[in-house]
Amino acid sequence: MRKEVILVGSGGQGTLLGGHILAEAAGIFDGYNVSNSGRYGAAARGDVTVSEVVISDEEIDYPKVTKADYMICLSQIGYDKYKNVLKKNGILIADSFYVYRTEHKNTHFIPLSEVVREKTGSEVGTNIAALGAFVRITKMVSKEAIRKAVKEKTPKGTEDFNLTIFDIGLGKIKEDVKVDEREQDLQEEYISILEADIQQR
């Protein structure tokens, strides 16, 4: 069994840390073999960041993602850039505020950043909430493993906060909106506003 996960976001959303935590959970606490790598660059300044995690119960030869089984996506431009990496029937977990249009059938739009903002006043931790949703939907790694990895990898003093956010993601937040319905909801105007916003960023 070899499963490939790709996490895509904008600089500052904690994409790389999210991948690191997932790899730590799967590798160290759930006992799989893992390979985790990031793509960085000017990402700290708002560019698209990508973290790849390969999880396997066999020796991992090629350590990078070729065709991902799962994608966690926190940014529309990130999706547009990396959509071809996700298998056609791959599972996509998308933040419904930052990602508004996808081509994958198995898209789970989840208002991760909105709920985190509602509950904590800021969007810090959306990456951790996304891991919660990932565990709930894919069952690839155990909740306990992620909890342990979160404790280890998040800054001292923020562990409890991050664990709370993980639980938010883990719980079913709202009915996941299916891709078709969502497409209808989106007004052209709304899209153009978002596009302008993204370009500004």
Binding site: G27, N33, S35, N36, S37, I60
Partner: peptide, 9 residues
């Protein structure tokens, strides 16, 4: 650069 930032167990 691949190995530099690749994480493995």
């Amino acid at each position: 650069e691949i190995l530099a930032h690749l994480r493995e167990k």
